[in-house]
Design a protein around this nucleic acid. Structure first.
Lengths: 382, 382
DNA sequence: ATGAAAGCGCTAACAT
DNA sequence: ATGTTAGCGCTTTCAT
C-alpha cells in the first residue's frame, strides 16, 4: 500500500489535487481525475487519509501534526496554521484505534442493563438516562458501549469487556446492598461510577437521588392536601432503594405526629396485579386510608385500576402518589416524584471520566434532590 | 517496558509462577511473591498479558498463538492444546484495539437516537430494541455504541463516527421518506441497516414490521366484535409509518364492504391531549363511531381519558385499540398491536454484520408480521 | 520549534 | 506445522 504523496510524485500533481481527484471533486478536471484514478489503481491504492498524508501536505513531520492535534507542545503559529489547513483540506480524522492502542484507552464507557421483564423497574428511565449519558459523554470525546446484562448477573461480561480493553470504565445501575459487581470492580481497580449506592461502608463513586426526601415530598404533599390516613405500598424489604423510600414515609408521619399504623403498610412485589390486590386489602382496613403513596408508578397504576373497578376515582375518593415520574405518570395524570435524570447522567459521566483520566473530582459521592410533580391523582383538597 | 519472560529469566522462576506471583495468587508463597514484586518494580513492569507472553509460556511463536486464536491455519492438536492452556493459565484476552488497528474494524455498531420529548414515538420501544440488539450483537462478537442524535438530524455525528473508525456500521430507526441519513450513507458506502423503510425506490437493507397488516388485525378484530362504525385516529400525513397503517384501515373496511366515512378519520399530532380533543370531535359525529382505532398507544390513552371524563368506559361503551404494545398498553389494559422487536433486532444485526463482513445475506429486506394483543379495551362483544 | 524513530499488540504474508 | 517479520496509525521520547 502506498500513500498520497507517492501518488502525487507519480502523477506529478500536487498532493491536494490528487486527493480531490480521488474524491471525485468537481474542482478537478475529468482528465486529471482519470489520470489519478489510473495511477491509484496501478498502485492498488485506496483512499485513506492518515496523519502521514497530512504531514506531507503541510510539509511537516508526523510528530508535528500529532502535536497540534493534541495541543501538547507549542508549535509556531504559522506551522500550526498550515497543519490545520491540511487537516481541513483532506478532511482528516485520526483513527481512534491507533490512538487507543498507543495511549491505551478507548474513550468508551460500558453500560450494561437487564432486560426489564418487569415494566416498573427503575430502568424504565433507561431511555432518558442512556441518552443523557451519551450526550454528556460526547462532550468529553467519549461514547457509550451498551451491553446486555443477563438478569442473573454474570461478572464474566464485565471481565471480558475490561480484559479485552474494550472500555475505559463502567456505569452501574440497579445496585443493591453488597452488590457483587461493585465488589468485583472495587477489587480489580477498574474505574466505575454507580447510579445509586450500596451499604454505606463501601467507598466508591456514586450519584444518588435522595429517596427519603422523595417520599417525604410525596407524603407531605398528601398531608397538606388534608390526608391523615395514608397507606404505603412498597417493595419487599432488602432493597436499599425501597428501604430508603419507606424511611421517608416513616419520617414524615413522625414529624407530623401521625402514628404509624401497620395495616396501612403493605409490602408487595412490583406489579400492577400485586398492587391491585394490595389496594383491596388496604381499603378493607379499619379505618381505611384516604390516600396511598407508592414506591413507584407501576404500583400506583394498580391502585388506580382497583379504584376504578369499584367505582372510585383516583384523586377524588382516594389520593394516589407514584414515584419515578415515568412517562406513564404523565399519561395517566398521576402525581409522582421526578428524578433529575439529566443531572444524574451528567454527574455520573463527569465523575467517571475523572476516575478514568486519573484526575478524580473532589466530590465523588453526589446526592441529588428529586421534585414533586402534582397531577390529578392527588390534587384535590380533602 | 519488559515482559513476563524477562521477569522469569531474572528471577529464574517459571513464567507461570511469575504471573501467579504478580496476580497475588495463593498458590505462590509469600516469599516468591515478594521476590517477583521486587524484580517487577525494578524493571518498572506492570502486569499486562499480551500475545507474546502466551507464546512464551506455550513455547511457540506469536504467529502460532494468533493462528489458534483465529482458527485460521490448522495447528497440530498438541501445540494447539498447549496454546489454549497458556491462554487459560494467563487469563489472556486479545487487545481489541490492536486487533482492530490491524484488521481495520472495530466490531462496534453505531446506534443513534433522538431524545423522545414525545413519549409516544416509536422508540418508546427503544429499551427493548437496544437490549435485544446488544444481545444479538454479542453473539457475533460485536457491541453497540450508542450516541445522541440531536432532534435536528445532523449528518456530522455520523460522519465523525465513521471517519474516526469508531464503528463498522450503523443501525437507523425512525426513518421517513427521503431520509437524509439514508441518502448520505448510501452515497458514502458505509454499511447500515434500517428498522423501517423510506420510499420504495431506494434500495438498502431494512427490517420492517408490516404496519398495514397490523392495522388490519386491529380493525378486523373490531369488526369481529360487532363494530361497524369505526373511527381512526392517526398521525398527520407524510410519515411513511403512519400512512401504511392508515392504508390497513382503508383496506379492511373495503374488504368488509363498509364505506369509508371521512368524519371518522382524524389526523392529529401524537399526544394524549390532541387525542382527547379528537375523541370529543369523533363522538360528536353523526352517526357516532362505536370503536376507535389508533395508530399508537399514546393516542389510545387520550381516547380513554376522554371517555372516562364523560362517564363512558373503554371496552364497554366504546372499544379502543392502540398500536405498538408499549409497556403502557399492558398497564392500562389496552388492546394493541405487538411488534416482534426481538426478531427485528436479531435480523437487523444479522443483516448488518453480513454487510460489514462483506458476506451480504441473501434477503436484505425483511418484512415481519405484528400480532394482535386483545385486552379489556376492546374485548367485549357488541 | 520540529524531526526521527521506537513501539503499542496484533494479524497475515512469507519463509522455513 | 510453525516461525519470522512487516506493518496497521498513532503518540511520545529524544535529538537537533
Amino acid at each position: 500500500m502506498s500513500n498520497l504523496k507517492q501518488l502525487a510524485e507519480i502523477t506529478r500533481l500536487p498532493i491536494l489535487t490528487v486527493y480531490q481527484a480521488l474524491e471525485g471533486q468537481a474542482s478537478v478536471t475529468a482528465a486529471v481525475r482519470q489520470q489519478v484514478q489510473t495511477a491509484a489503481t496501478s498502485l492498488d491504492y485506496t483512499l485513506n487519509i492518515t496523519i502521514r498524508d497530512v504531514a506531507a501536505l503541510a510539509d511537516v513531520s508526523v510528530g508535528t501534526v500529532s502535536h497540534v492535534l493534541n495541543g501538547n507542545t507549542r508549535t509556531r503559529p504559522e506551522t500550526r496554521q498550515r497543519v490545520l489547513q491540511a487537516i481541513n483540506d483532506l478532511n482528516y480524522r485520526p483513527n481512534s484505534m491507533a490512538r487507543g492502542l498507543k495511549s491505551n484507552h478507548t474513550r468508551l464507557i460500558g453500560y450494561g442493563w437487564h432486560k426489564t421483564e418487569d415494566p416498573g423497574r427503575p430502568n424504565a428511565l433507561l431511555d432518558r438516562f442512556l441518552y443523557d449519558m451519551a450526550q454528556a459523554a460526547e462532550a468529553w470525546g467519549y461514547h457509550i458501549l451498551t451491553f446486555a446484562q443477563p438478569s442473573q448477573i454474570s461478572l464474566k461480561r464485565y471481565d471480558e469487556l475490561i480484559q479485552t480493553t474494550r472500555i475505559d470504565g463502567l456505569v452501574l445501575t440497579d445496585i443493591n446492598y453488597h452488590d457483587e459487581r461493585v465488589r468485583y470492580l472495587l477489587k480489580s481497580g477498574v474505574p466505575f461510577v454507580a447510579f445509586g449506592h450500596t451499604n454505606e461502608d463501601w467507598d466508591f463513586p456514586s450519584v444518588e437521588v435522595d429517596g427519603r426526601l422523595g417520599m417525604k415530598l410525596a407524603v407531605e404533599h398528601l398531608i397538606a392536601r388534608g390526608h391523615e390516613r395514608i397507606g404505603l405500598l412498597c417493595w419487599p424489604e432488602g432493597m436499599r432503594i425501597g428501604d430508603v423510600r419507606v424511611q421517608g414515609y416513616i419520617d414524615v408521619l413522625a414529624a407530623a405526629g401521625i402514628p404509624l399504623y401497620k395495616p396501612w403498610i403493605v409490602r408487595i412485589r412490583n406489579s400492577v396485579d400485586h398492587a391491585f390486590l394490595a389496594t383491596q386489602q388496604l381499603l378493607a382496613a379499619h379505618p381505611r386510608p384516604t390516600a396511598i403513596a407508592c414506591t413507584n408508578d407501576v404500583m400506583a397504576l394498580g391502585v388506580k385500576r382497583y379504584l376504578n373497578q369499584i367505582g372510585l376515582e383516583a384523586g377524588i375518593d382516594v389520593a394516589i402518589t407514584g414515584y419515578d415520574d415515568t412517562p406513564i405518570a404523565e399519561l395517566v395524570e398521576l402525581t409522582s416524584i421526578r428524578q433529575p435524570i439529566d443531572m444524574v447522567a451528567a454527574k455520573v459521566i463527569e465523575i467517571l471520566i475523572g476516575e478514568i483520566e486519573g484526575k478524580p473530582v473532589p466530590r465523588r459521592n453526589i446526592l441529588l434532590e428529586p421534585t414533586l410533580v402534582v397531577r390529578a391523582s392527588s390534587r384535590t383538597q380533602r
